[in-house]
Design a protein around this nucleic acid. Sequence first.
DNA 1: TCTCCTCGAGATCT
DNA 2: CTCGAGGAGA
Length: 326
Amino acid sequence: MREGKGKSIIEFPENYCIVDVETTGLDFEYCRIIELSALKIIGNKIVDSFSALVNPGTWNIYNDEIGDFAPTQILIPDFVTELTGITNDMVKDKPIIKDIIPVFSEFISDSILIGHNIVAFDSNFLYDDFYKSGKLLSNTLVDTMRLSRWILPDLDHHRLSDLAAYYHIDVFGTHRGLPDCNTTFEVYNQLKNTCIANFGNIGSFLSYVKSRLSKTYYALRSKDIKTDKKDFDVSNPLYHSVCVFTGTLEKMTRREAMQIVKDLGGECGDSVTKKTNYLVLGNNDFCKTIKGGKSNKQKKAEKLKLEGIDINVISESVFYEMAGIE
DNA sequence: TCTCCTCGAGATCT
DNA sequence: CTCGAGGAGA
């Protein structure tokens, strides 16, 4: 879907275009753009702007009176007019999107596009209309909502209005193309300021994000868990044992469970081997790829046990008993 | 150790 | 769409 669409990146470019679209609704298939706006920023300064009201065009739907399919004007729902102030009258003599795309395309050229929720919303409407005009929207995207979630993680919400309020940005008319572009521009600059204030510089922020994101690809490894304990209870069954987990634990995260093992003088393994002493079974229900209710780790553990290896497959509750946890 | 996959929860756009 | 959780295979 939407092949060749530009990538979403976490960055703070100095040259870019802020983009905002108003539409007849949220649905990509049935809704249409009614306003298309953009600001061109070079060296952090606004140097140009673009804004156009758009006639949403027509649907080819069955007309009872004519007894055939006929083009019917797509209307702006009342709640959208309420929200944006854009009426059917305002767009009725405006060009359709197909006639605006070439101008808009030339305006943005190949610059990075920045917008609030642009990755999941604006860019998809634009991509589809570009596509219908035989063009590919492949511009790289920077989403201020995504930036905001990294830079202001404690905020309850990251809507554009929330960020405008948080930064005390004066908003001149909301839910219209250019005003929203201007708000987004202000928000972007403030996010950059906060970023530098909190991380020292953009570079350390970017490497923080990068390391955090890459961790989502790398499963938790036993080497990530360290203990500062020295005096261990040598009678505890987990002492000097090698413990492996599979599935999701009910009472704690896997990281916490691994920490308990290490604190008791045990070791954790990332996979079941001949050195493994305990395999702790969590819940596998969520995992559709596991057939027959057994993970590969459990199958391997049972195979090794048949070969005479001293390996015990235990439940989560037995693990807590062994660890001395209520 | 590295690369890539899948799923669910949560949030935002008009 | 993003992120964090768990996973497979080489």
